[in-house]
Each structure stands twice: as structure tokens, then as C-alpha cells.
Amino acid sequence: MSGELIVFIVLAIISVAAATGLLTSRNAVYAALFLIINFATVAVMYLMLNAPFLAIIQISVYAGAIMVLFLFVIMLLGAERLNGEVLSKDLKWQRPLAGGLGVLLLIQAAYVFVSRFGASPVAPDLIKSGPMEIGMKLFNSYLLPFEVTSVLLLVAIIGAVVLTREK
């Protein structure tokens, strides 16, 4: 077993454990912290997958901005207690069905991914993916999506401001 595989296995275990924690925790703050751990492990995997730029962005966007926002809102609303997770009567059948379908989806996805793509070897000539290369790609091939994204963010800003403004 190569060193990378060992690292991967450790990370994967942490990652799945954190996701399980997210799913089962009764406290929103804990859930958020589990999710952060999950994101951090994924960030490390990005490093292993030759995407250092994305790894850093993952930390600063997901951990540094998105999850802080989640925590902030949870704390602000005092909504961390998730007791009384009782389903409405209409939705009793929901949980087992969701679980079953989820497992089905997992099997499908694993089958498709591994059978279709997983076997192909990794391309030997790895491109550099530093900020320079990402930037060149972003502002050449992906200029339109980039601009559209900026508009999307603007819309999100306006939406958030309008929604939370006191009447």
C-alpha cells in the first residue's frame, strides 16, 4: 500500500465519520462542526488530487465563509436544539423509503462511476493548477460563466438584503 492510499483511507474514514455525525447529531452546532471537518478532509484530498488552489478556496469559502455563516445564523436564532424531530403523520413512510432509495442510489452511483471511469488510469501529464493557470482558464474559456456567476452573486446579495430587512 502506497503512502497516498494510507492517507486517503484515513481521510476517508474521518470524512465518512463526520458525515455520519452530521446526519445523526441532535445539535445544529455539532452538525456544522462535523460538516467543517468533512470539508477539511475533502480539502486535503484536493491537495492530493493536484488541486492546491481549490483546496485553499475550499477552506476559505466553505470553512471560512459558508460555515461561519451557518454557525452565525444558528447562534443568532438560538436554533441549535433539534429536539422534537418527530415527523408529521403524513410523512411516516418517508424515512424508510428515503433510506432505501439512498442505498439504491449509492449502489448505482458506485457501479456507474467505478465501472465507467474508475478503471481508466490517471493521465500521466499533469497540468499545473496554480492561481495563474486557473486564472488564465477562467478568463479565457470560462469568461461568460464567470460573468454570469458574478451576476448571480449580486442577485444573491440583493436577495439576502431584501429578505432580511426589517419591515
Partner: peptide, 9 residues
């Protein structure tokens, strides 16, 4: 690792 299967999985 010469394959990405674990990541996909």
C-alpha cells in the same frame, strides 16, 4: 495511486 476510483467511491 494510479486510479481515482477510491475518490469516486
Amino acid at each position: 495511486m494510479n486510479t481515482i476510483s477510491p475518490y469516486i467511491l
